[in-house]
């Protein structure tokens, strides 16, 4: 994980030093810093670095797809003539246990259709989620567990 942070920091430093803040230059700086980190790969030892990049990119793609879908569904729900929603809060048992992953999962849940993460329990084992359509909480739990949580586990474990 630290390798990625270093990579991004190096890319930003590259952009700052070269003095042209274009997207192309940022991508070029990212590649240069990745190459520099690759040279010292023995020191920082990150197995499967490039494989993970693909998974993180697929997570990002999933994120934007879900964001578009959720915005569309909420918009349709708001504009539909008769408002039939069944809001409620359900508890979601967390499988991921690291703070970073919980934060990411909570943010992703907020941007999925009709769900909004409200709170995490004290022991970080349960996430409380508010859903616009809470008629079938088990199905919502299964969706989150098989969608985002699995993707996050793939990308960061």
């Amino acid at each position: 994980m630290t390798t990625y942070i270093f990579n991004v920091i190096f890319a930003v430093v590259w952009v700052a030093i070269t003095g042209s803040a274009t997207l192309l230059n940022l991508v070029f700086g990212f590649l240069v810093s990745a190459a520099a980190l690759w040279i010292v790969r023995g020191e920082i030892s990150a197995p499967g670095y490039w494989r993970r990049v693909g998974r993180i990119l697929s997570l990002v793609r999933l994120f934007f797809k879900e964001l578009a879908m959720s915005a569309f569904r909420v918009a349709v729900m708001a504009l539909s003539p008769n408002l039939k929603i069944k809001p409620g809060i359900f508890a979601f048992p967390l499988t991921v246990d690291r703070d970073f992953e919980i934060t990411l999962l909570a943010n992703l849940i907020t941007l999925t259709p009709g769900t909004l993460s409200v709170d995490v329990s004290e022991d970080c084992k349960t996430l409380y989620v508010h859903a616009l359509d809470c008629s079938d909480p088990d199905a919502a739990r299964r969706d989150i567990a098989e969608g985002f949580e699995r993707k996050i586990m793939e990308a960061f474990r």
Partner: peptide, 11 residues
Amino acid sequence: LSDISVQDEMK
């Protein structure tokens, strides 16, 4: 929560 809410597991 409003009255039409189905459940509140958090509470």
